[in-house]
């Protein structure tokens, strides 16, 4: 029973930890828009957590500047398993308009494993919600894989 309850809950209460790795703030605003009454991500149990230790899903925005790279990797290492990494916007995937800059180290896949990537500059809140929800389902799969 205990196992069933935990397995069931695994996808129902994904807590987010948001890391801005040099983003222009556009994606960050759209992420916050997801929590507003219009989209209301809380109905799926999403909640912004204050510390990476509490998080299930790490949300990355921005093209990963070289200053923020180590900090990003360190913070993601501190998140307990099972965890998911979601990138928002084109920047973490490709570098977007910042590509080729001496201080930008995108794509983020080079340093951390990414589970869901939401593309767009900036993606719509609906798209972000879709991405986050997919990540929540992946969480459940990871949990089941860990406790076979």
């Amino acid at each position: 029973m205990f196992k069933k309850l935990i397995d069931k809950s695994a996808s129902k209460s994904p807590w987010l930890y948001h890391i801005n790795s040099g983003s222009c703030n556009g994606c960050d605003i759209e992420l916050v828009a997801c929590l507003t009454p219009r989209y209301d991500a809380e109905r799926f149990g999403f909640k912004l957590a204050g510390s990476p230790r509490h998080a299930d899903i790490v949300v990355i925005s921005g093209p990963v500047t070289s200053q923020s790279r180590d900090r990003l990797v360190r913070t993601i290492a501190q998140v307990p398993e099972p965890k998911c990494v979601v990138t928002i916007g084109s920047c973490p995937q490709s570098g977007n308009v910042f590509k080729g800059s001496y201080s930008v180290e995108a794509p983020v896949e080079n340093f951390v494993h990414v589970d869901v990537a939401v593309a767009g500059c900036t993606p719509k809140p609906e798209a972000i919600m879709e991405g986050l929800y997919t990540a929540a389902l992946i969480l459940k799969k990871k949990r089941e894989a860990m406790h076979k």
């Binding site: 205990f2 309850l5 935990i6 397995d7 069931k8 809950s9 695994a10 129902k12 209460s13 009454p37 209301d40 809380e42 109905r43 799926f44 149990g45 230790r53 299930d56 501190q78 307990p80 398993e81 099972p82 949990r143 406790h147």
Partner: peptide, 23 residues
């Protein structure tokens, strides 16, 4: 004016946390 989480949401939170690693 939101729909909000289901009333059993804190229950889900609790059991989810039980399933995670404790560092």
């Amino acid at each position: 004016k939101r729909i909000g989480p289901p009333i059993r949401q804190p229950m889900y939170d609790f059991f989810k946390l039980m399933g995670k690693e404790t560092i």
